[in-house]
Write a protein that binds this DNA or RNA. Sequence first.
DNA 1: AAAAGTCCGTTGCTTTTGCAACGGACTTTT
DNA 2: AAAAGTCCGTTGCAAAAGCAACGGACTTTT
Lengths: 217, 217
Amino acid sequence: MLTHPQIEHCPLFRDLSTEDRAYALTYFDSKTRTYEKGDFLHQVSFPLQRFGLVLSGSVQVYMDDIDGHHIIMAHVEPGGLFGESYAFLGIDAPIYICAVSEAEILWMSPHRIKAPVSPVSQLDQELSNRFVACLASRTLQMNQRIQILSRNTLRTKLITFLSQYATEKGDSFTIPFDRASMAAYLGSDRSALSRELSRMQAEGILTYHRNHFRILK
Amino acid sequence: MLTHPQIEHCPLFRDLSTEDRAYALTYFDSKTRTYEKGDFLHQVSFPLQRFGLVLSGSVQVYMDDIDGHHIIMAHVEPGGLFGESYAFLGIDAPIYICAVSEAEILWMSPHRIKAPVSPVSQLDQELSNRFVACLASRTLQMNQRIQILSRNTLRTKLITFLSQYATEKGDSFTIPFDRASMAAYLGSDRSALSRELSRMQAEGILTYHRNHFRILK
DNA sequence: AAAAGTCCGTTGCTTTTGCAACGGACTTTT
DNA sequence: AAAAGTCCGTTGCAAAAGCAACGGACTTTT
């Protein structure tokens, strides 16, 4: 797992020397495990002892609402984390996690953040800070999502969603969702989404093919 | 501020002895300040050095979206926190915070979480853990909000919203929003919301008056 | 006490959206 | 190669929702 280039993209491990990274893996008491496409990494209402870092493949996090609908909470690509909050709090996680494709996961424990082993080295403190920073960043990400979902028409939700991608990746980008997932992510209906995308393409606002988009205006 | 009973409701200070609580205030380098109704506690794009604890009154946190619409991110009552993520990350906060009523705020710095002063006492560690737990809990709260906003009809959003309150407070409760804020919180239109509430009352699902609700079915 | 302001329900109208169903393009399986 | 499966665009229709405007109840100001 040390050789996974993806690990560089994770703020937890970025810019660490090889020794420091090896230390970090023990600090978080890490274990890797691979999953086949469609496997469940976690089931609803089990405590999540560890949080995960996606090394390869991708996973999606879901919740069920009161009526039994599946709500997609997150799509996690290599370098991305999931479950940090539940793992830190040590509570039952009302989520389930599913491998979108064959995936390799680094499972890590936040135990030493909560109960540091003295003496606390500078690296220990740095790793702790990075973990907390990941928690804080997560709320910023969720703010972005709430911004999208707070808009009251599908058109404006779409514009907000695509603008966020465009801000980060430029005018041409690929999203990690198929239409159905994208509609769920936007809190909308798949056919309504297809219709709206068609309209926007007809109006010359953007072009797209499947999950690749190019913003024109 | 030591005498504010509200402080007991904050997970940061709950169940601390009087001395420990006094120590906590210095640990977080706390300062209090009062605001008049309508005052801004923070303006967009300024770094947030400290996070806030509402001692009395209430505040609301807003963001502006791309088109200049105001999105309500949070309503914070006595005992509630705001701005922890931005304060910890030390970044510009794209939010503004406004006093809904005359409000007394305890401003606290997360500095010693990031850079502990040795020797780190057991209480230091406890306070650090509590702060991180607040960050983690924040993401759970936001998950609740996303659950509401992900529903694709106003009726189901309302049911989800009200069910969350009913789960926490029982069948009869008062919400901290007027209609306009409630509609913004649900990502909807005020008149559409009024209309839907009327219908649900006519159907015998609930009764309400202003911001007080009673769930019947 | 009058005036101004706030909050909220109501309603008419138009647009948007959800929903269900169908079919085509493409991929995977057998 | 046929069959089955997946993904997505399209469309018709009915329901939902946005929008704008009005008026009543109530509160605050002057």
